[in-house]
Nucleic acid binder design. Sequence first.
DNA 1: ATTTATCTGTGAAATATTTCACAGATAAAC
DNA 2: GTTTATCTGTGAAATATTTCACAGATAAAT
Lengths: 211, 211
Amino acid sequence: MKINIPVPAIERLTKLFSLVLKIKKEGKEKVSSAELGILTGFHAHNIRKDISMIGTLESGKDGYNIESLENLIGNTFGFKEKKKVCVVGLDMLGAAMLNNPDAGSSEFEIAAGFDSNTNRMEMISTKVPLFHLYEIEEKIKEMGIEYAIMAVNPENAVKTAERLISGGIKGILNFSPVNIVPKNGIQIKNIYLVEELRLLTALGAANSQQL
Amino acid sequence: MKINIPVPAIERLTKLFSLVLKIKKEGKEKVSSAELGILTGFHAHNIRKDISMIGTLESGKDGYNIESLENLIGNTFGFKEKKKVCVVGLDMLGAAMLNNPDAGSSEFEIAAGFDSNTNRMEMISTKVPLFHLYEIEEKIKEMGIEYAIMAVNPENAVKTAERLISGGIKGILNFSPVNIVPKNGIQIKNIYLVEELRLLTALGAANSQQL
DNA sequence: ATTTATCTGTGAAATATTTCACAGATAAAC
DNA sequence: GTTTATCTGTGAAATATTTCACAGATAAAT
C-alpha cells in the first residue's frame, strides 16, 4: 500500500526535520506551525497539512512537541538509522566532502573514499579509509555503504554511476557536471554548479517584471 | 506585465538549456522533444509545453533547431550575458569552487574570492584575486559581481549573507549548513550536504512500498 | 467550572501543473 | 503535386498541490 505524499511535501518535511534538530539543540521543547513558517518561508497551513499527511501528534496550546515531531518525520522517512556514505572522486571537491564536519554529527557516516589515482590518494589527509576505484563494487557490499557522493570528472561520471548502482547503492548525490538520469528506483540528485547559478539567474529574471 | 511561468517549468527549461549546449557541442543541429525527453527524464509533452510558454520556434519534420532553442531559452532567462561570481569562505570546499573548470567555460566568471583568514588565503593557489572579507561590499559593487557562492562556517552564514545582500548581490548559492531564508527578491538556494542525503533517503522511502 | 486564547487537523475550494489529443506545419518519398 | 510520416504548438481535460476556514482540543486565566 503506497500512500502518495507529494514530492514537494517530502522536500519540505525533510527541511523541517533538519530545522527541528537544530531548534531542539537550542533547548526549546515546543514549536508552532507559525514559527516553523517564519523559519522556513513556508506557509503555516502548508506545514500543518504536510505533517498531517504522515501522522498525528497530540495537539496543545503551544504547538508541536519538538521531540514528537522529530520522531514522526524521522521514523516516516528513515532518518533515525545510521547510514554509511562514500565519496567517489577525490579531486579538490571530493576531498573537501570527505572531511565535512556536519556529516559526522548527523546520521550519515562518511565511511570510505574512492579514486582512480593512487598518487593523489596518498597526498590526502583524512581519517576516512581510501580505496582504489577498482574495488568499489566489492567495498560497497562489504561495508554496507548505502549512499554515494560523486565528484568525478565528467568523462567518467556515467560509468562510475553505473558501477555504484551495480554495487547496490541506494542513492547518489552527483556533483560531476553531467546529468545522470535516475532509473530502477535508485535516487539520484544532480548538483551542477553552473546549472544552480543559472537557476538563480532564471528565477531572478522570472521574478522581475521582465517576464 | 508578469507572465507566470511555473517554477518547475523554469527548472526544466534551465536544465534543457545546459543539455542543449552540450548537444550542440557534439555537432548536432536538430533535436526533437522526444529525444530531449529521453535525455532528461521529462515527458516530451511537458517539454513542448514548457518551450511554448516562452515562445515559438519554426516547426519542422525533425524537431527543434538546436541553436534557435538555445537562443530562445537563453534570451528569456538571461543566460547569454556574462556574469561575475565570487566565492565567499575559502576553506576546502570554497577553495575547490574557486578552481571549478566548468564555471570558466560557461557564462559565469569566478572573479573574486573572500575570506577572513589572511594566512589561509596566502596558502591557496589560484588565479582568482582574493580579498579580505571586510572589503566584500565594496568589491562587489566595484567589480560588478552579481552572484555569490557561499561556503563559510555556520556561525557566520547569516551575517555574511546580509553583507552580500547589502552589497547588491542578486543571488546566493549557499553551501554552508544553515538555511538562509530568501527575501527582498534576492534569489537564494541552500545546498546543505546532509539535507541532500536525507532527501535521497526520504524519496527512496516514499518510493518503496513502505509508505 | 467556565471562559478565553491559541493551537492542530482536515475536508473542501481554489489554484497550479501536467498530460492529452489533435490541428497545423514541414519536408521527404513517390 | 499528392501522399505520407513526423514533428511542434496548444486549448481542454485530468491531476496534483496548496490554501482556506473552521471544528475540535488543550491549557491558562478568571
